[in-house]
Structures are given as C-alpha cells and as structure tokens.
Design a protein around this nucleic acid. Structure first.
Lengths: 223, 223
DNA sequence: CGCGCCCGTAGGGATTCCGTGAGGATGCCG
DNA sequence: CGGCATCCTCACGGAATCCCTACGGGCGCG
C-alpha cells in the first residue's frame, strides 16, 4: 500500500514515515502543493495524506487537481479546526479530515477504514482507443509515435469523455463543467470543438469511430 | 437517500431529523442498539448514524452486527474523545467518527463525502434481459457483443421500463414523463416507439418475450 | 359472420440537430 | 506594434429524428 504524505513540516514527515513504514506502508513525501501533484502523478499512491496549510498552492486546489485523475482516498490533515475549512475540503473531494495535533493510532485506524472502502486500487489514469493514448494524469495525448497538441478547451472535452469511457456525456454536462454556470446557449461551440478533436484524433474525421455523437443527447467515447 | 439515526437522545434525533430532512435525506430513527439493528434490517438505509453510548447494547457490538450483512457507510457519533474508542469503532467496521458536540455542516459534509465513495463503488445500474444489457448510468445498450443505437425518445422509453423491471408501466405515465404535461392524445407514438424498440432489442419483434404489452393498460419489461 | 376496438407496422413530410468552413474578436508574447 | 494561438459567431448543406397518417391483423361480442 503506497502512501503519499504532503506536508511542509519535515519533522512531522519524518515521524510519519517511520511510524507508517513500521505498519507496512510504502511512503513517499512532498514538501508543498505543487510537488504533491507531480509526485502523485509519478508515484501513483494508493492513499494521500494532505496538509492544508502548505506554501505554493492552496490545499483545496491541490485536492481538486488530484481529483481530476485519481480517486485515491485523500485524508486532509490540518491545524485549522473551523468547520468551514472541513466542509470546503470534504466537498472538494477529500475523504476525511483530521485536526492537528492528532493521535497516531487514530490516523492509522482512519487509514484502515478508508482502505477498506477502496475498490480497485488503481484507477487507470490512461485511456487508449485506436492509436491514440490519453494520459489523464500527465495531460498528454499521443497518437502513434507523435504527441498531439490540444488547446485547453479541446483537452477539457476529451478529459470529460475519457474519464467515463463508453458512457454518454450530456451536452448539458459538458457546458456546465467546461463553461461553468448554467450556460445553455449552445450556439455551437461543442460541435466545433468536437469537430476539431475528431480532426486530430480520428483516422477518418468524417466517419468517427471513437468520438461518437448521439443526436439529441450528447457525445460518447467508445474505446 | 435513506438514513438511519440511532441515538437515545430524543432531542438530538428530532433536531437531526429536521435538518437532514431539509437536505433531502429520508430519515428513520432508533432509540437503542437493539432497535438500531432491527430497524436497519427492515428499512435498509443507505447510511447509518450511530451513537456509541446507547443502552441495551454496546455500540461496537451494534457495528459488528450490522457489518454482518450490510456494507452501508456507518458514521459513529460519540461524546467520548479518547483515541482508543475511535480506533475500536473504526476497526469494528465504522467509516467515520465524529465527536459531540459537532457542527451540523461538518456532519453533512462527511455524509456527502461518504456517499460519494459509495456511489462510485456501486456503479451497478445495469439491467439485462435476454442478450441485451442496459446500462442506466452510461446510457448505453448492448446486444450480444454489438452496441445498439437508440434515439432519445427510444431511450427514454426503455429507461422508464428498465428502472422498474417487471412492473407495469401505464401508458399515462410514459406519456406524461416523456412528452410532459398531461398529454393524453395517444395518437400512436407509444405503439410506434415500442415497435422500434422491439425491432432493435427482441429476437423476434413480432413475438416479444421481454417488452410485453398489457392490452388496455400499458407496457411491462420482464427480465 | 360482421363489426368495432386495440395494437403493430410501414412510409413519408416537417422539423430539429449536427458537421464544417470562413472570419472576426481577444489575449499573449516578443 | 505585429504575429500567433485560441475562442467564439454565423451560416448552410446534409443527416437524424420526430410525428402524422394509413393500413392490416387479432380478439371479443352481438
């Protein structure tokens, strides 16, 4: 069971590394928010211990970034005791919230409780179809041997589709998640970006095999 | 989302029932450990809120009894702050531990966090009959090894039938839910789309085995 | 047997929905 | 200031979908 500890207090990290290591966990560490994200992408931990008050990046933002591609349990560790902080972190995608100072045995128990819930430890962060490989964690797209460059909007569309392969994604969902709010004025961006995606990823853009459209409903990525 | 509250403090139960009810939860309550177990068995809640210090039965025993047959998330609420109690409860099978007094918004956030995990784990919104598999979540239909394409209206019909398999669905219900308002002018849409569904899903469309019609009443999906 | 009732099915027009090209608007960077 | 990438609008041809109408068949009943 691999564990990522993201905390800027070297002493705490050292203590946790020893204790958790003794309980059979494989520990990797990151000193700030940015490092936490890159380290998580590289090491693919099964669980994440995250301090809210780190330099570089807000803890909430770190949670959101991680939740973009991994469903690994996140336990937030923080000195702040206000319920507002807890609510914010939990709603951003964290699974549990422990306030410092904490008892190490309680933390261990919460880790055990969460790991019980975890289904398939490795939620594949890579989706591939045809000769295209999409790496959700690295935000990179490869076709054959060459890398494909996508604009931010194109990537967001592909990301949404690739996150639930085979599932139908409603036009509403895409509009809401990419353009925020309740944008209902689909004056045709979706059609346009989908067209560009197909041009970049499909062998025959005019007759797509993977990026399908369901008339009147939305789009679907078929592997 | 049905919620079981097991607590011997009537005032707290009353307050929780109001607050949680306002947030869309369907609340049932039990005043002691024994009642919690029997009520849970009868009501089949999706989540359980459990007080450790109840008469009749130790909270830990209640957890173990519940875990014997249900995997619904259990949040323990207790006045004891000792880490030993937390560890014991969590290791017995509880998912989270909140100490009294607690902020109601924190409790709500923890409920949301847990339900998120449970839902993603139980993504089994699949109904199948014959060689047809209907995935309600992905809005996809497969027959044998091939995907079946449905138009929006066809899908809505199938969805209604598949959401209550075996049950009779009134023509009125279908008309109202698909075409909105109190459209009673069944000038034959239903017959038409049902015909197309059978053509796509039944082995012998002329002699349907699963998409049956009850003369004068409506339609029924038998698995 | 004749009839009305209900249901299944086929064809076709009207409408909505989708793909795509061209081009203007905006922001970034040297 | 100019080039560049990206985002967005608009318009049009073509495809998919919806919905209406019509026709045929099974079934109960007088």
């Amino acid at each position: 069971m691999k564990l990522l500890i993201a905390d800027d207090d070297p002493q705490l990290v050292r203590a946790l590394r020893i204790t958790l290591g003794a309980h059979g966990y494989d520990v990797v560490a990151a000193p700030d928010g940015a490092a936490a994200i890159t380290t998580a992408a590289a090491a693919r931990p099964d669980m994440i211990l995250l301090d809210l008050g780190m330099p570089q990046l807000d803890g909430i933002q770190v949670i959101q970034a991680l939740r973009g591609w991994t469903s690994a349990p996140i336990i937030v560790v923080s000195g702040r005791t206000g319920s507002a902080d807890k609510v914010e972190a939990l709603d951003a995608g964290a699974d549990d919230f422990v306030t410092k100072p904490f008892q190490i045995d309680e933390l261990l128990a919460r880790l055990r409780a969460l790991s019980r819930r975890v289904q398939s430890a490795a939620a594949d962060a890579v989706v591939s179809f045809g000769d295209v490989v999409v790496d959700l964690a690295a935000k990179s797209v490869t076709r054959g041997e060459h890398r494909v460059h996508l604009t931010p909007t194109e990537w967001q569309m592909l990301e949404h589709l690739a996150r639930s392969p085979g599932a139908l994604v409603t036009r509403q969902d895409l509009l809401k998640d990419i353009w925020g709010s309740d944008q209902v004025t689909d004056s045709g961006y979706l059609r346009l970006y989908m067209s560009q995606l197909r041009k970049k990823l499909e062998a025959t853009p005019a007759e797509p095999v993977h990026l399908l459209t369901e008339a009147g409903m939305g789009y679907r990525l078929v592997l």
